[in-house]
Design a protein around this nucleic acid. Structure first.
Length: 591
RNA sequence: GGUCCGGUAGCUCAGUUGGAUAGAGCAUCAGCCUUCUAAGCUGAGGGUCAUGCGUUCGAGUCGCAUCCGGAUCACCA
């Protein structure tokens, strides 16, 4: 890549001139700001001190050396204060097109043998997916594709939280008040159907608590003593004992939820290579506790409970086994981490989980490290901020959530409305139109959630619908459709190299940006940050639109220019398509 | 209280291991469709980068302190 070549040239130039060795940390290479002449800039200040030279003298000596050493790569340099601006030859940029006639895999890394697992989505089976889950699903899917793009083998997994006290709540509510209703009998999607009973439970439970408080009981106590809570705990106990009625109820209601999830996952494009169920894995990790006790990582208190002391690491004491011998959340996670490692022989394990669990993930990694597990150092938490409403946090118990299905449907509806108003695809069949509106609506939604730095929390205002103009998915999709429209009408002659001299500013700018694609993939992968990809694709599309308004492709000044611009357009379209695919967003040929 | 994260234009967000005059989109205003798709392009206005001190050739970026917002510190998951 060009930045690497410049770096090499700087290092060897310095070596020749001053017989000193430097590292890449000692200077910076940036894209030259548009108000100056040049393509890339070497910032010299970091070198000045140890060479005992003025930035001016150093810049001229180094610039001249670099140009004379690499006459085919650099055509000129200029120096402003401590900034050495280099002009890269037009031939270099145009050769980019010649060496990438097969644009479909452009920018992607060669297979590197890395095996990476990405756990994401991880729903509870007591309620439908909401906006927060969408951010999780889009991030998980996207980072998986970006990691694949960087050359890794990726395994997508999901841990379904299908058991526990919260699951029993909706089960109990259905048992009490369901009157045998089913998703089929009511026509309600299965996950919503079950979620409604979860909400119902909490309503009734609240009433009971209030009644007890009114009779003089303390709230904390009332929450424990409410008959519904007691009944739920009893149900959980029966489930753990394998009570046939309870297990049957559990299986039936979970199957309703799964059929609902399937529809949603299919719509939003989430899928998994392996699904783990908590009902199968919640007993994992017990041997790890035994092992930890043996080698002194854990210690047992007089009541029989088992702990790990993390105070030396700035954390607290953490329980890993209750006094009654049952395991806690973190214990399962230790066991599951081990299972993933042994089943898939993975080099890295990435967890897409909200930032409310930052502490938990820190503890998990630390415990695995202390237990001497070989995979411990390769656990990474892709932590993301909560999606909140202007009114504050979403609470599923109170039903104040933006439902995933509703939101997706709404986005598609708006996409259809825009599309019909513009009337550009009136010849589409109904099926084609449906597919297009799905693409645009979901594209808008996914881009909206992915363009923001994952670790930042974001506020979503349902009153202001997600935009289709500007820094959005549809803007990029539209740019792609425009390019395809040109390419449909013209053909490209791949038999010869496009002419290389006299690149116009915008032609060169596009090539410079296209050249960066490979670096962007690596950077997004290394930092587990799809927003960098989103910003890059947007910038590229924006540059293309400026170019499009300024210069004609079909009616270029000469055949050579036309050929060159067709090739640039094709590569731009491919990079947009490929980059958007890594965000889980499709791009249409027409819209 | 301890730990962690955040605070940049009216709003939503960028800002690479410190680099040139802090950038986009939305919204507002003014232009651009007889020529490849106007979901587009061009221009204008809009900033005490939360606050203060420090580090140095140079700080939105690093350090310390303070203010504001959030998360977390369960024998819950």
């Amino acid at each position: 890549m060009i930045v690497d070549q410049i770096r090499e040239s700087v290092l060897s130039g310095l070596k020749e001139l001053y017989d000193q060795s430097f590292q890449e940390k000692d200077f910076q290479i940036n894209q030259t700001r548009p108000e100056f002449e040049g393509d890339y800039t070497v910032v010299l200040f970091g070198l000045v001190k140890s060479l005992k030279k003025s930035p001016d003298a150093l810049g001229h000596e180094l610039g001249a050396k670099m140009v004379s050493n690499n006459p085919t790569l650099f055509t000129a340099y200029n120096l402003i204060k401590g900034f050495l601006n280099l002009t890269v030859s037009d031939t270099y940029w145009v050769d980019l097109l010649a060496s990438n006639t097969d644009a479909s895999c452009y920018g992607k890394g060669a297979p590197n043998g890395q095996r990476i697992m990405v756990e994401y989505s991880s729903p509870n089976t007591n309620k439908p997916l909401h906006l927060g889950h969408l951010r999780n699903n889009f991030l998980g899917w996207s980072i998986s594709e970006i990691l694949k793009g960087s050359g890794a083998d990726v395994f997508k997994t999901c841990i379904v939280n299908d058991r526990g006290i919260h699951i029993c709540k909706s089960m109990l509510a259905w048992d009490n008040w369901g009157n045998g209703a089913t998703p089929d009998s009511t026509g309600i999607k299965g996950d919503h159907f079950v979620g409604d009973y979860y909400v119902r439970f909490n309503e009734e439970y609240k009433k009971e608590v209030k009644e007890l408080v009114d009779r003089g009981m303390k709230e904390v106590e009332a929450e424990k003593e409410a008959p519904l809570m007691k009944a739920t705990q009893e149900m959980l106990l029966k489930w753990e004992q394998g009570d046939p009625h309870i297990v049957g109820l559990w299986k039936m209601m979970n199957s309703w939820v799964y059929s609902g999830f399937d529809i949603t996952y299919k719509k939003i494009g989430s899928d998994f290579d392996k699904t783990y169920y908590e009902s199968n894995s919640y007993l994992l990790g017990k041997e790890d506790v035994e092992q930890g006790l043996k080698n002194g990582v854990f210690h047992q208190k007089s009541d029989g409970s088992v702990w790990i002391d993390l105070t030396d690491d700035g954390l607290d004491e953490k329980l890993v086994r209750r006094k009654d011998g049952t395991s806690v959340y973190i214990t399962q996670d230790i066991g599951l981490a081990r299972l993933k490692y042994t089943e898939f022989k993975i080099d890295q394990s990435i967890y897409v989980i909200g930032d409310e669990q930052n502490y938990h993930m820190k503890v998990l990694k630390l415990i695995c490290q202390k237990l001497g597990m070989p995979f411990a150092n390769d656990i990474h938490h892709l932590s993301y901020g909560m999606v909140e409403l202007p009114t504050g946090k979403m609470k599923s118990r109170e039903g104040t959530v933006v439902d995933a299905d509703d939101l997706v449907d709404e986005m598609i509806r708006i996409a259809r409305q825009h599309t019909m108003e513009l009337g550009k695809v009136n010849d589409f069949t109904e099926a084609e139109l449906d597919a297009l509106c799905d693409t645009i609506g979901l594209g808008a939604l996914k881009f909206y959630l992915l363009r923001v730095d994952p670790k930042k929390r974001m506020i979503f205002n349902p009153e202001e619908s997600i935009d289709f103009h500007g820094f959005t998915g549809p803007f990029i999709q539209y740019t792609h459709a425009r390019i395809r429209s040109i390419l449909r009408k013209e053909s490209i002659d791949f038999s010869h190299k496009p002419a290389g001299e006299g690149l116009l500013k915008l032609e060169k700018q596009l090539l410079i940006e296209l050249e960066q694609f490979g670096n962007i993939i690596l950077q997004s992968a290394n930092e587990l940050d799809p927003s960098q990809m989103a910003i890059y694709i947007y910038t590229l599309a924006k540059t293309y639109n400026t170019f499009y308004a300024e210069h004609s492709v079909s009616r270029a000044e000469s055949e050579e220019k036309k050929e060159l611009r067709l090739r640039i357009s094709l590569l731009t379209a491919e990079v947009i398509r490929s980059g958007m695919a890594m965000l889980g967003i499709k791009v249409p040929d027409r819209m």
